[in-house]
Amino acid sequence: MTNNATRIDPATLASSFAIGQDPASVRARVEALERILERAFMVPGINRPIGLDAIVGLIPVIGDLIGALMGSWLVWEARNLGMSKFQLARMMGNVGFDAALGLVPFVGDAADFMFRSNTRNLRIIKRHLDKHHPSTVTLAG
């Protein structure tokens, strides 16, 4: 049984990082980044997806800082969309909490499986886009 959500087509990925600043391009970019950071690979045996955030997080201290920087890019995209300061603060709180958890040996690595800050932040961005830019809504099938 294959899981289509974990396969990343390179052509689709390249087109997802389009340079455009329109809401549809931003939606495509943040969805692609979240997929890479949280669900890029499937762990054999437990069928649990992991991403670059969890893999890089295995490197003590530096990995967590790199993960926080990658997650901060989602917040930057949200800022460029004109999201409220409350939403941005909430998103930075998610990234900060994930980074702080990651600094605790072993606990932080296990927490990357449970607390997916980038997925939470994508949900916040999608809610904003669905409300303020309804033409960008895509139907998942």
Score class of each variant (00 low, 15 high):
Val26Ile: 14
Met1Arg: 02
Val75Ala: 14
Lys131Trp: 14
Val95Ala: 07
Ala140Trp: 11
Ala111Met: 14
Ile50Pro: 00
Arg29Tyr: 08
Pro44Cys: 04
Leu122Val: 10
Phe41Ala: 15
Val56Phe: 10
Gly45Asn: 14
Ala24Phe: 02
Met114Ala: 03
Met91Asn: 08
Asn4Ser: 09
Gly141Tyr: 11
Gly141Ala: 14
Arg123Trp: 10
Arg127Thr: 15
Leu69Glu: 05
Asn121Pro: 04
Ile50Gly: 02
Gly102Trp: 14
Leu65Ile: 11
Val104Phe: 07
Ala140His: 02
Leu65Ala: 05
Leu37Ser: 06
His133Leu: 08
Lys131His: 14
Ala140Glu: 12
Phe113Leu: 13
Ala11Ile: 11
Pro44Asp: 03
Leu74Tyr: 01
Leu88His: 09
Ala89Glu: 12
Lys85Gly: 08
Leu81Ala: 06
Ile124Ser: 10
Glu31Lys: 06
Glu34Asn: 13
Phe115Met: 07
Leu139Cys: 05
Val95Cys: 04
Ala24Gln: 01
Thr119His: 08
Pro134Thr: 09
His128Trp: 15
Gln21Ser: 13
Asp130Phe: 00
Gly57Trp: 05
His133Ala: 15
Ser72Lys: 00
Thr6Glu: 01
Leu13Pro: 05
Pro10Trp: 08
Gly93Tyr: 03
Ile55Leu: 15
Gly96Arg: 14
Ile62Phe: 13
Phe115Gly: 00
His128Met: 07
Gly96Lys: 05
Trp76Gln: 12
Thr119Tyr: 12
His132Val: 05
Ala11Thr: 09
Ala28Pro: 14
Ser16Lys: 09
Gly63Asn: 00
Leu88Gly: 04
Ser72Gly: 15
Ala99Met: 06
Met114Arg: 03
Ile124Asp: 12
Ile125Cys: 06
Trp76His: 12
Thr6Cys: 04
Arg7Phe: 12
Arg90Asn: 07
Gly45Glu: 05
Asn47Gln: 06
Leu69His: 11
Arg79Glu: 12
His128Leu: 08
Pro10Gln: 07
